[in-house]
Design a protein around this nucleic acid. Structure first.
Length: 126
DNA sequence: AACATGACTATGG
DNA sequence: CCCATAGCCATGT
């Protein structure tokens, strides 16, 4: 079947732009939604290439632990946290509070979620 | 094609 | 919680 297109980065950016305000996701989920399960590192690499582009809410992308691992690329170490808090997301000790509660599964954007709004609280694998 | 890099993830101590 | 190791994948040189 078709493998990963050359515009892998563009897909990452597009998916990141689809992240609802006040929501966050992790690199692995994005990679999986893009059909590149396991390419979580590449997703972060793609965001690094965007170097804090204002059009891309990269601040909503954190690692699977909810840690703001990319905050060092936002110019200020507190810029990423401030942006998240500005959207109603509480950050403590460089980690998103209630990460699983604010977690947004990118698969809901690409796949047909039937009643995704009914049960947004699902134990992933924490 | 080989090597090095990285905003990752999982497991173990 | 902190640190080390291994596996993973796309990109650039």
């Amino acid at each position: 079947m078709s493998k990963l297109p050359p515009d892998f980065y563009e897909r990452v950016y597009a998916l990141v732009r689809c992240i609802p305000l006040g929501r966050v996701t992790n690199y692995g989920a994005l990679a999986r939604a893009l059909g590149a399960d396991g390419a979580a590192r590449t997703v972060g690499y793609a965001l690094n290439a965007c170097h804090s582009d204002s059009s891309i809410p990269a601040h909503r992308v954190v690692n699977r632990n909810g840690l703001l691992t990319g905050k060092f690329h936002f110019g200020g170490l507190s810029a990423m946290q401030q942006q998240l808090e500005a959207e109603g997301i509480r950050v403590e000790n460089d980690a998103v509070v209630d990460f699983d509660r604010h977690f947004w599964d990118p698969s809901e954007q690409t796949t047909r979620a039937k009643s995704s709004e009914n049960e947004p609280l699902m134990s992933k694998r924490l």
